[in-house]
Design a protein around this nucleic acid. Structure first.
Lengths: 133, 133
DNA sequence: ATTTGACCCTGTATGAAGTACAGAGTTTAT
DNA sequence: ATAAACTCTGTACTTCATACAGGGTCAAAT
């Protein structure tokens, strides 16, 4: 049983963020003690860690909510639903990977052209490439 | 000479976004006509396209402002500065790619093990593996 | 046992990065 | 001439958090 502050410290997020995630339905509501304090369990730690990971990967709150449903609320879902949702997300993820790889390739080729020497940036290929349509 | 609406249409952004970019100093202030209307020129088209392209490459607004400043005050900056900024971004992107690939792999293993039959997912054996993402 | 400090509760305000809208003036088209 | 379409400004709303204010609670030191 963790309080909100303990949970925040444990996963390394802001204490208010937890309340926010609860408000928008990304984190399931914990039980409350007689004093009204939230009582967090293992489940909430895992949910929060998952959210943090997905956030870091640039997923929207909507997507995270769906992913949360797949991973956490799986009891309430049929296998067909799970498979459909997951397949859609795999597509989304593989597209993101492709986009990022393209981006990475572009940036690497740009820095390769740029020797980083201590000269004026007037003719820097990075800036020039961005000015080009 | 373009009005705000024409510029927005030309570069494919929201008309209000242009005013916003001007407000935060990302887009330089255009001249005004006798009626007070903004009069945009080639420069502003290029600046907007620069912003869009940099955003598309995943640069934050802060980084874009820096890059914009570099181009405005070009003699004071060096290629090394631009290269440093870009290199940091490449690192971030390659980490994102790695994270996404790991997530994709996990999700694929999830669907591979799921027969998609119209049964409850309650006892789906891979719930725990999802938490290891 | 009391007090002090750290913690929790709620609601509300703030920040970034836009987007939308209201009310007023201007240009364009029919 | 008049309506539609556009522009101007300021302000409000959105999302994803983060911060703060005013009040209640817990736990440890005195």
């Amino acid at each position: 049983m963790l309080t909100r502050g303990k949970l925040a410290k444990h996963v390394g997020c802001n204490i208010e963020t937890i309340r926010y995630y609860e408000k928008v339905g990304m984190l399931s509501e914990p039980d409350r003690g007689a004093n009204g304090y939230r009582q967090y369990e293992e489940l909430h730690i895992k949910q929060l860690q998952f959210i943090q990971r997905a956030k870091g990967l640039g997923f929207s709150s909507g997507s995270i909510k769906t992913l949360m449903e797949i991973t956490h609320n799986i009891e309430a879902r049929t296998r067909a639903e799970v498979k459909t949702l997951t397949d859609a997300h795999i597509l989304e993820i593989s597209q993101k990977i492709k986009d990022l790889q393209k981006l990475e390739k572009t940036l690497i080729s740009l820095t390769d052209q740029c020797d980083g020497a201590n000269k004026s940036a007037k003719h820097c290929p990075i800036i020039n490439s961005m000015y080009e349509i």
